[in-house]
Design a protein around this nucleic acid. Structure first.
Lengths: 193, 193
DNA sequence: GTCTATAGACGGATAGAC
DNA sequence: GTCTATCCGTCTATAGAC
């Protein structure tokens, strides 16, 4: 007779390690999130991390995989009226960032990227794959330059609001952000350069 | 007779340590920039760091002091025509960031802020003191909200161009940046909200 | 002011028992 | 699959000789 449920640790152990790792990378960065402290919070033996992920870098690589599909987040933008695409994009991005899982992933990328070259490249690629590709589908010309401008504004919003937590930026509501920053994105997308 | 020149290490030693520290904090972040590696590159005994700065945090605190006066950098903005303040501000900031000393200081703040709470607060305060104060002097109303918007855009430009080094953003010239982002800043400064 | 020596803690990784 | 034990490296900080 097969045992019911899962065995002691099983594949649940792996998932719990990964969740705690994401949490600690996001909160403390790569070096301070030690394998021992991750194992401790996950109530798991430290040696299991090596067992499941090979090394600390292996764990980081897994942790940096996107928890959501950017295409899904930005889906509504493509369906919005052409005159309000900018506003729709701000609304979609802020909406995603306000969820704990996405915000944590953003902070994890940022804090590990700060001291780990590989993580920086992952963040660069992620931003390219989500924003540049999405923008290229929305605009007619100069996709690279337009997406560059969009990325400066959107990355800056996330950086000042969720990482630095500048009081003046935190104070703004999602609605105010959409109203004030939406037109900027709109201009970057459609205005002559 | 007084000895000519300076004695073996003297105050020159201190300055050399500080310069190397800024360099390594900017390049590797707080934890990877060990006192040993800083002392090594500065060709100085590791114990001298404690001697001059008390502790590693003391060294960091010194290293985070602004190497330039933001008021001087932004001086030209106040003298520009009201219709082109945004463009002038972008020009002034990019001009500053393109110098090695300012760019290094920005990267140092960012990389240490990522894993060190104190550094994050310093960065927050620095941005407030330079941008918020400058903006408040330029605008008539809603200084907090206007400066918040300006900070999202300017921080995002610095972040994507100098830290992440997104190819599409790096490719833009200072002139192109002033032309494309200047109007955004202008709108944040003067348009009705 | 400068250096040697070392304390004392913590890091990642591995070998092997169960 | 899980855990104990341990190797070996690195780190910050300090005490004290010169």
């Amino acid at each position: 007779m097969k045992p019911r449920g899962r065995r002691p640790g099983d594949e649940d152990t792996r998932a719990r390690i990964l969740n705690v790792a994401r949490e600690q990378f996001a909160h403390s960065g790569y070096e301070r999130a030690s394998m021992r402290s991750i194992a401790g919070q996950a109530q798991v033996d430290p040696a299991l991390i090596t067992h499941y992920f090979g090394s600390k870098v292996g764990l980081l690589t897994e942790a940096l995989r996107l928890p959501v599909d950017p295409a899904v987040v930005l889906e509504s933008v493509g369906h919005s009226e052409p005159d309000h695409m900018g506003e729709a994009l701000v609304r979609a991005m802020v909406g995603a960032w306000e969820t704990p899982v996405v915000r944590q992933h953003f902070l994890g990328m940022l804090r590990t990227a700060a001291s780990h070259e590989v993580a920086r490249e992952v963040m660069q690629q992620t931003l390219h794959d989500s924003v540049q590709v999405a923008v290229a589908r929305l605009v007619d010309d100069d996709a690279d330059r337009r997406s560059a401008l969009v990325m400066t504004q959107m990355a800056g919003l996330a950086f000042t609001r969720y990482f630095l937590q500048l009081p003046e930026v935190v104070a703004l509501t999602p609605e105010e952000l959409a109203a004030s920053i939406g037109p900027t994105i709109q201009r970057y997308l459609v205005d002559p350069l």
